[in-house]
Amino acid sequence: MSEKTIAQAIQASQAYFACVQEELGRYRYQGGDSRYETQSLLKRCESRLQPIRSAFAAEGVDPRITERYLKRKRTQAARYALEAILELEARQRAAQAGG
């Protein structure tokens, strides 16, 4: 894989995780299912992964490898987001119970 493609993948990955961070910053617990909330948040950032798919396709990378790579990025983001959402929910519930 060329340096250019690697750089594009890194840049798109950083943009994806930055989007997830931004969405988490806007998140407010409203009593819903944390897993649903995580999926909803990640869907709003999904378009940020498209440059990786395009760069890999232009490089001739096997689509199965591309999908595996994108799945790995999504999984990493989902774990991070779910953990953060659960933590935010716990804090908000504790504040409501204590206040």
Rank of each mutant, 00 (worst) to 15 (best):
A97C: 07
E89A: 10
D33E: 13
T75M: 11
M1R: 04
S13Q: 11
R26V: 05
K4G: 05
E59N: 00
R53W: 02
Y80A: 06
A78S: 15
R68W: 09
I52Y: 00
A7R: 15
T38S: 06
Y80N: 09
A84I: 05
A58P: 03
Y16R: 08
P51Y: 11
A78E: 14
S40K: 15
C45E: 04
Y36H: 12
G60S: 03
E3S: 03
A97H: 08
R35V: 15
R72S: 13
R72A: 12
D62H: 01
A78Y: 14
A55P: 01
L42Y: 04
E22G: 08
V61E: 00
E83N: 10
Y80L: 09
D33C: 04
Q39A: 13
L82A: 07
R64Q: 12
K73P: 01
E37A: 05
L86W: 07
T75Y: 11
R68Q: 13
R72L: 12
A15Q: 09
A58T: 09
E67D: 14
A12D: 00
R44A: 13
S34A: 15
Q96C: 03
R74E: 14
A58Y: 03
G32P: 05
R74F: 12
E89L: 04
P63N: 06
A81M: 01
E22W: 11
S40F: 13
A97R: 13
A94I: 05
A7C: 12
E83L: 04
G31M: 03
G98Y: 09
M1F: 06
T66P: 02
M1Y: 04
E59Q: 02
V20C: 01
L70D: 01
G99Q: 08
K4A: 15
L41G: 02
D33F: 07
V61K: 00
G25I: 02
T38L: 04
E67W: 03
L49D: 03
G99E: 10
L86D: 13
E89W: 05
Y69F: 12
S54A: 12
A58N: 10
L86T: 06
V20I: 14
L24K: 02
S40N: 14
Q50P: 08
Q11H: 09
Q92I: 10
I6H: 02
G31Y: 01
R64C: 01
I10S: 04
T75S: 13
E59H: 00
Y29S: 11
A94G: 06
E37K: 03
K73T: 06
A90T: 14
Q21E: 12
A9V: 01
Q8E: 15
Y29Q: 08
L49Y: 06
I52Q: 05
G98H: 10
E3Y: 10
A55F: 00
Q76K: 14
A77F: 04
R79P: 04
Y69L: 12
R64G: 10
Y16H: 13
A18N: 13
L42E: 06
T38Y: 06
L86Q: 15
G99V: 04
A58M: 07
R72I: 11
Q39K: 11
E37R: 03
T38E: 07
A58I: 04
R93Y: 08
E22V: 07
L24Q: 02
R79H: 13
R93T: 09
C45D: 07
A7M: 14
G25T: 06
Y80G: 03
I85R: 05
Q76R: 12
Y16T: 04
S34M: 10
S40V: 15
S2M: 03
C19K: 11
R93D: 08
R53D: 00
Y69M: 12
G60D: 02
Y69G: 03
I52F: 01
A15E: 09
